[in-house]
């Protein structure tokens, strides 16, 4: 099939970017979207032009590195799919495709489709962990965890940290991303001792890093390649409320 691409090109963080049009002739429907871009880049290199820079690594939908908004939707229109797993058979001959980077103030563009997502790491550093030491922990079966709870935690833990939720959010909020970690750890007995502190610290980091506030649009869930549910945001809200109830035994927040 033959396609027309409009790709965001931007030289550096300080430069102004614009959409540049590239024809994509003879696209094989078995190609992945990134392989299609590889071919365009190959052509650009042969012509002596600067190839399109884009983040990618595992190309199997798990590392979370790829980050492109395709026709207005993070990772493209196929549900629960990262752009590296999006295949060209999802498009039709003659389609016009707009390819843009994640857009949010907290994600400054570095070049073309590459953005800086270190703000998400900062949220994790604020409390996305259980403060256990290496070694000196009890046997893994000491505390039975009901299957339902383990499954719930796993549902949340599937987040790949790609940032599609933020790219899709009308407020550029990182609430789904944050809530997935908060909910995972709050559900498990290991995470409970620090639950109050964690939810407060992580949501504070979210705002400090320049993300917006959640106003329940739920675009995040629709864009998430792993189908992380907004019920985890509800869980985060509940955890936050709990953290505000004074307690003499809980850790101060």
């Amino acid at each position: 099939m033959n396609l027309t691409l409009h790709v965001w090109r931007q030289k550096g963080p300080q430069d102004k970017g614009k959409l540049v049009t590239y024809p994509a002739p003879n696209v094989d429907s078995d190609m992945s979207f990134l392989e299609m871009l590889d071919e365009i880049n190959d052509e650009l290199i042969r012509k002596g032009e600067d190839p399109i820079a884009f983040d990618h690594d595992c190309r199997e939908g798990i590392c979370g590195m790829c980050s492109q908004v395709v026709n207005g939707r993070p990772h493209g229109h196929q549900e629960r799919t990262t752009v590296c797993q999006l295949h060209m058979r999802q498009f039709n001959d003659g389609d016009e495709i707009f390819v843009e980077p994640w857009r949010a103030k907290a994600f400054p563009i570095q070049k073309d489709l590459i953005v800086d997502r270190s703000s998400m790491d900062v949220i994790m550093q604020a409390g996305g962990y259980v403060s256990c030491h290496t070694g000196g922990v009890p046997d893994g079966n000491t505390f039975p965890i009901p299957k339902k709870v383990a499954d719930y935690a796993m549902d949340a833990a599937e987040c790949i940290g790609c940032g599609a939720c933020i790219a899709a959010c009308p407020n550029s909020s990182a609430m789904l991303f944050t809530s997935a970690k908060v909910a995972q750890l709050a559900a498990l007995p290991q995470g409970k001792p620090e639950a109050r502190k964690r939810v407060q610290a992580m949501t504070k980091a979210l705002l400090d890093e320049g993300f917006g506030n959640c106003t329940n649009h739920y675009e995040c869930e629709a864009a998430c390649p792993k189908g992380i549910s907004v019920k985890f945001i509800a869980k985060l809200n509940r955890e936050y409320l709990k953290s505000m109830i004074p307690s003499s035994t809980a850790e101060p927040v």
């Binding site: 409009h6 965001w8 959409l19 207005g72 843009e100 949010a104 103030k105 907290a106 009308p170 917006g212």
Partner: peptide
């Protein structure tokens, strides 16, 4: 705040 958190619009 939310408006400030957004950068430019998507095409």
């Amino acid at each position: 705040e939310n408006r400030a958190a957004n950068s430019e619009d998507y095409a």
